[in-house]
Design a protein around this nucleic acid. Structure first.
Lengths: 341, 341
DNA sequence: ATGCTTCCGGATAACGTTATCCCACGCTGA
DNA sequence: TCAGCGTGGGATAACGTTATCCGGAAGCAT
């Protein structure tokens, strides 16, 4: 499994020692020049720089990291690398702005893989970890956290370990979606979303139930949480659309559900009002264009890095959970009127 | 810019020395256990392992890397981290299967940023670099390549440096698209795509011209390469659709162009036959569903890692360019008949 | 007893950096 | 002339591993 690279006899890279020899100065002086130590004369600086470019010398960051104790890298364990991942992108940007690189690994929604990825990051002594947690229990991380590894969860909190978290305001988002549909005349509103064993699935379903209760709408048969598969979404949709008083509007709890719902509805998509939780590229070119509750990915990523840096600076600071506001983007599908009965 | 982390007084992590003391064995023995050296007795192995779990010891990979000379990491400089990136995902998978981690950085289509990202990877002494090149000239990489850094370009070749490359069969893909439209009765077929300064834009436009020439169709006013902006695509589309003999079918040269074309066409999308180069999520839930030429991202990523490993094993092997076949996925938009004149 | 493995410890040198301490200059200002 | 500086070299110890060479101590067969 681990047949590391490096079998070949690649040409040896120049080291500081080589540069020192080339420039005719002491090793110490090269180090000073590389680290912009001001106590070295302009004459020598230029000679050293010349030697550096002549030899194509680039300092070995592994050695620097070992020596300095910091790796200048943060790990990002995200669920998926293949699909669009705006949060990862924001994390990347925020990290770069601080001179940090991002070691991104995909967990593919697999707990074992998540653990493996995170542990690998720890062995690399990353300066912090951003995690989009999969499982409920992350006890295996508590040792690392206790050892001072800054850890911040995004999208969902980490269970079993005290860690900072940055979450979207799920309840407010569902509220916005529900209100939008109500305002446009809908009374019978259904919800299909993630399994309630998943944090966001739980929060969003609960918020939906609260909305229905507050507005006095019908609840029975209207809430369908569960694993997101084509068949389950189709069954749920068929159920809420059948009977004497079918739902006239739908809220979907995540992108995957939204897509499956659209796939099932096909050409009938224009006859059911729909608001999806979470935006995605191309939502605006569907017909009707999709009304969504958009998470502020840029803000989430930025905040995650902020929290990471803050914790690295002060490991003793209290654990913090930041809730990032969401936004309703009306594009048409959520503004469809109920069929005039 | 580079205010690295690590200000806080994090608890010191246990080292091999600590484990040795805890287990009452020699440092050397701990190293043997960690590296699964068979020459150590079962009794001591279990004692060392107990000490390891008692102290929550995890070897410092930075030190291992420095010592071993390999970093167990490959760098991936891709154009975009926010959007779907199936090739990156495939690279991640193929790397993991070999025990390698992926250091992903986004270049955001910016040459300076690409250079910065790649150089940062080199300083980290990654075992190889997968790059989705932006600019035409990558001379700054030749020193690294000469120093033995395995480098493989995906999607486009690297200019100015001898590097392996994995490309899609652009000409064949355009040919498939053209043939599909011809078969369905189209004679006046237009092409809108990327700027011809970009490798793929050049290849695809050229292939399109060749197809037209081979089939004896009209060419004048039918080819519109250029930077992909909403306004340019709209103008090109307006142009090919106007006049006495408008185009009845369209080939778009990349995803961005496809999207812009769909945005412009809006509700009229069903009246123009369309084949897009490159697949994307959700292409199947559009109406009409989008016929595309799909690149084999999984194969591309796998091949890239294969080439990387092969070059690491034998730096002297001849540079190789692998062309990966593409596939036409008929979903409806490319099978629309021309308006019966 | 003598040999010959097998298992383990000890010491030490790397890997490429950074940092510390000290010393040797060549200046300047009194 | 001597103290006080700014500039640079030299030596050396880290950082946490791995690897090499050696030596000792068993265990077992000759």
């Amino acid at each position: 499994m681990t047949d590391r690279l490096g079998g070949g006899a690649r040409r040896k890279r120049p080291t500081m020692r080589d540069v020192a020899r080339e420039a005719g100065v002491a090793l110490r002086t090269v180090s000073r020049v590389v680290n912009d130590d001001p106590t070295v004369g302009a004459h020598l600086v230029s000679r050293v720089r010349a030697a550096i470019t002549a030899l194509d010398y680039a300092p070995d960051e592994r050695a620097q990291q070992l020596r300095r104790g910091t790796s200048g890298t943060i790990g990002a364990a995200v669920r998926n690398l293949a699909d669009a991942h705006p949060v990862l992108s924001a994390v990347d940007n925020a990290s770069r702005a601080r001179g940090l690189a991002v070691l991104a690994m995909s967990t593919e929604d697999d707990e074992a893989r998540e653990r493996e990825a995170v542990m690998s990051m720890c062995r690399r002594r990353v300066d912090g970890i951003v995690i989009e947690p999969i499982g409920m229990f992350h006890d295996y991380l508590s040792a690392e956290v206790a050892a001072g590894m800054p850890l911040v969860a995004v999208d969902r909190p980490c269970g079993g370990v005290e860690a900072d978290a940055v979450l979207s305001d799920n309840a407010a988002g569902i509220g916005m979606a529900y209100r939008q549909l109500s305002v446009h005349g809908h009374r019978r509103i259904a919800y299909i979303g993630d399994d309630e064993r998943i944090f966001t699935g739980r929060e969003r379903a609960a918020a939906f139930r609260a909305c229905v209760a507050a507005s006095g709408g019908p609840l029975s048969g209207m809430v369908h949480p569960g694993t997101v598969t084509a068949s389950r979404v189709a069954a749920a949709l068929a159920s809420v659309l059948s009977g004497p008083t079918p739902a006239t509007a739908l809220i979907t709890g995540n992108v995957a559900t939204t897509i499956e719902a659209l796939r099932y509805l096909g050409a009938d998509a224009g006859r059911l009002a729909l608001v999806g939780f979470d935006d995605f590229p191309l939502a605006d070119i569907l017909r009707p264009a999709l009304t969504v509750v958009a998470q502020n990915s840029a803000e989430i990523g930025r905040t995650a890095i902020d929290l990471l840096v803050a914790r690295a600076a002060d490991p003793a600071r209290p654990v913090q959970t930041v809730t990032v506001p969401v936004e309703l983007i009306a594009r048409g599908s959520g503004e469809l009127p109920p069929p005039s009965a």
